[in-house]
């Protein structure tokens, strides 16, 4: 390694004062949600999650939010930041456009306290689409074979962390909580297009329901909300196409192993 590299950690210590507008709601105290403002010193490479924790730890311990991994993999801290769904741990202060941020709970699920919503309806939709491999053939003594192409076919959906950013950004879901929502469809796609699975038709039947895939009006909110960069709308379209044509677009047996 010969070329000179600039020290990428320059500027880690500079700080700026942020104004955080936080939507508060504590059912034990408040009749209605209300906004509360906090001022907090933040460094450019702080995560919005760090900023919120700083407010909580230094100023007001009663703030309610979920968190765990701090690195965008556990799906705990989905919230609406400046009007857009994101994981608080995946947004850095240096990428904020202004010194003001508004933070509120994701929409469409009942608020329990402050930024914490009831995830049960979301997980119920997930569970409704049979989110598990179904294969009733006796298992071989080693692995079931699958080509790299077959494996690649359903890769996109396996990235999902069930954070609910997509479903709670979806206008049809806001209007009707019975709609299974994009996250459930992404997870159905993950199995429908897995060459080892045998329950595609049952899952497609479930998604053909009145509250299924046809509620989607292809507004693309979900795709731009997904912190994992999953092409949500495309996966939904592939499921719709499978329902319309009755054909699964998958790498065929002929290309498969000898």
């Amino acid at each position: 390694m010969s070329e000179e590299l600039t020290d990428p950690t320059k500027g880690y210590l500079s700080t700026r004062i942020l104004t955080v507008q936080l939507k508060r709601y504590d059912p034990e105290k408040d009749r209605e949600p209300h906004w509360q403002e906090f001022k907090v010193e933040a460094r450019p490479i702080d995560r919005v999650l760090d900023v919120l924790m700083k407010v909580k730890w230094d100023q007001d311990d009663t703030i309610g939010l979920r968190k765990s991994c701090g690195q965008g993999i556990c799906g705990s801290d989905a919230m609406r930041i400046n009007g857009q769904n994101n994981l608080a741990c995946k947004m850095l202060v240096q990428n904020l456009k202004s010194d003001k941020i508004t933070v509120e709970p994701i929409l469409g699920l009942p608020v329990i306290k402050d930024l914490i919503v009831d995830m049960k309806p979301f997980f119920d939709h997930y569970k409704s689409i049979m989110p598990f491999l179904v294969n009733t053939d006796p298992a071989p003594t080693t692995e079931r074979l699958q080509t790299p192409a077959q494996r690649e076919r359903f890769d996109e959906g396996t990235k999902c962390i069930l954070c609910a950013c997509c479903t709670t950004a979806c206008p049809p879901f806001w209007g009707n909580r019975e709609y299974v929502g994009p996250a459930a469809i992404v997870n159905a796609h993950r199995f429908i297009f897995d060459s080892r699975d045998q329950a595609a038709s049952e899952r497609l039947e479930i998604l053909n329901d009145a509250e299924g895939v046809w509620r989607c009006r292809t507004v693309f909110n979900c795709t731009s909300a997904c912190p994992r960069g999953i092409k949500v709308t495309q996966l939904i379209s592939e499921v719709k196409r499978a329902l319309i044509t009755g054909v699964l677009d998958m790498p065929q047996e002929a290309e498969v192993l000898a």
Binding site: F132, E143, L145, T147, R151
Partner: peptide, 20 residues
């Protein structure tokens, strides 16, 4: 245990001949 996980559906990456 790895074969168990594979049978449960774990999407391991594959070799060109389809193995884990």
């Amino acid at each position: 245990c790895i074969y168990d996980l594979e049978h449960m559906g774990l999407p391991f990456d594959r070799t060109p001949d389809g193995r884990i």
